[in-house]
Design a binder for these strands. Structure first.
Lengths: 336, 336
DNA sequence: CCGGTTATACTCAAAACGAGTATTATGGAG
DNA sequence: CTCCATAATACTCGTTTTGAGTATAACCGG
């Protein structure tokens, strides 16, 4: 038991890409017992049974001019990936997010960033792997209708969780309706974090070394019992991923970030599938087309894609000028 | 010259309140030479000539369960203010944001938070003071039309700045149009940070110990010469304030945060003035009323306010239920 | 040349929005 | 007591935007 009770700062990257209509996130394997602040560079030797984590790297306090540049630097050095669009996501600093803190380890503060790329090359380092985002958050993929998981597995557990809340039953009921779209409340794709947090409080998803629920509701540290709610991640990285997905879903509606994930030219259906992949819902095809076209977000190239399986589709490209014309050029989600 | 080249973590608070139609931010006076990481608690003795700063406090790595609770704790302890709504804003970690770093001081990372309150009580500590947000960002207040400052003072300087850009003139021109709404581009109230950053690069606003512009364009560390662009703040706190204002302007459009700043009941004109104060633009009265009323954001109380100066106005209150009904219940800005 | 598949064009009613005019209720000045 | 400045509130109206379609076109494999 060390007595270094200082504060340590790390950087986390949620690197997102699309492979056709599959939204991917770059993950690494970490061996059992890796401390949270250990940079990814130290993970190259990892191969044994461990868990999945987000890439993590250090800040060089005298070398890195900004946090973002530090992130770009070690992502590039470690995976060869040149990130295009990068934005700060959130800074995570809860106590015990690194379980080693319980044994006297330092408080670990992680500034997490989102990076979007369309280079889907497998990263050089062997520990890196692209995985579907919905591997970790399966209830978020509503492209084939409301996931049965919600009404079959989550809803009954939610009902019990609401009952367990002594004084704040109505508060819990309200939170649950709002987050999962029960009753009057509509489903809001952007409330990813709210859903995750409720599942965490219910004990249906766990974070390494911590446990959800009120004290006593669920013994800490053990894997959750109950329905299959996707793959776990090390530390609070699944929470970070949930935060990132919520942010991305919100952002595609008012900034043209979706094009960071697209190739130079694309058909309108490819673009629609990309938006759907991240938003987690199906969209109305004709109205989607109208929105991006009349909204000035894309322009035709005259060239055609002949491999559509049906009538050839025109290839479009992103119209950069739209940034100068409209205040909030997002893609809009014409629901189905 | 010390050799402690570690990393230090601090917390910053942008605490916003409204006094009628004046948007205020809580500031403290710091004496010359205060290090960035020194918590506000240490500032009680400040009274000499110094500069204005945002409240800053420490994270107790073994005592504070979360960053947000740490912030609430020291804001309460130091100013007596009980913050209602709090959200994380951004984490600032650029090198040399604390000038002491040049003399071997540690790299200072600050997690900044926004706090909204309607308690406009003067804070207990004598160093605290409410100041108008537009004292620091005067070009952001467009309530009486486009600020003359922009076309009279900023635009000519921008033109020179664009010319100075050797290779990236068109890039600079584009950034300037986009940020300040020249030519085809509309004014976008939310681009507060983009405007600030251009002014910083131009050398029209400065940050203690740093200088804007490309190397050689402007000697570092000196106060900027040129038109009056508002009051400076210590460190990069004016940048933090700009970030906060941009975030708030964006947020009022899709979350009902404006009500965090309002009293329990209010007239629709008071609500409109509050939104205008933060958004920095005048709104169309009848359409604003239609939006908040038909949007289900408010409900009448039956009681009247007789001190309007004209016909008495009904007092309204926030309809909390709207959160359950609509996905993004913001106020909307029916421009004038 | 037929049916499956996808692209693209076009329609139509409902809702939302921008920009007003009209009317009502106060308090204060003359 | 009337007039008027000041607001509040009600209502209108043409334009866009949106939701939800139908209709038609072009390719492929058999």
């Amino acid at each position: 038991m060390t007595v270094d009770r200082g504060i340590v700062v790390g950087l986390n990257a949620v690197i997102v890409a699309l492979e056709c209509d599959r939204p991917r996130v770059l993950t690494v394997s970490v061996p059992e017992g890796t401390p949270l602040e250990g940079g990814t560079a130290a993970l190259d030797r990892a191969d044994g049974p461990g868990s999945t984590a987000l890439p993590t790297g250090p800040l060089d306090p005298t070398g890195d001019r900004t946090l973002e540049l530090a992130l770009r630097r070690w992502v590039k050095a470690w995976s060869g990936l040149d990130l295009g669009y990068v934005e700060q996501l959130y800074t995570f600093g809860d106590r015990f997010r690194d379980p080693a803190e319980r044994q006297g380890g330092p408080r670990v503060i992680s500034a997490a960033y989102i990076g979007l790329t369309h280079q889907d090359e497998p990263a050089g380092a062997s520990v890196a792997r692209w995985r579907s985002i919905y591997t970790f958050l399966p209830w978020e993929d509503g492209r084939r209708g409301r996931p049965p998981l919600i009404d079959e597995a989550i809803e009954p557990a939610l009902a019990r969780w609401v009952e367990r809340g002594q004084k704040d039953r109505s508060l819990r009921r309200e939170r649950a309706s709002l987050a999962f779209g029960f009753g009057e409340s509509p489903w809001d794709g952007e409330r990813v974090l709210e859903r995750y947090e409720i599942l965490f409080e219910m004990g249906l998803v766990s974070e390494r070394g911590r446990h959800g629920g009120n004290a006593g509701e669920q013994p800490g540290g053990r894997p959750p019992v109950g329905p299959d709610l996707g793959l776990d991640m090390a530390f609070d990285h699944r929470r970070i991923l949930a935060t990132a997905l919520g942010r991305i879903r919100a952002k595609i509606r008012y900034r043209p970030v979706i094009f960071e994930l697209m190739p130079e030219t694309f058909t309108l259906l490819q673009l629609q599938r990309a938006v759907e992949a991240l938003a987690g819902v199906r969209l109305h095809k004709q109205n989607f087309r109208r929105l991006v076209d009349k909204g000035g977000l894309v322009e035709g190239t005259g060239r055609m894609d002949l491999k559509t399986g049906g009538r050839p589709a025109e290839l479009f490209r992103f119209r950069r000028e739209v940034l100068l014309e409209r205040p909030t050029p997002g893609v809009g989600l014409p629901g189905l």
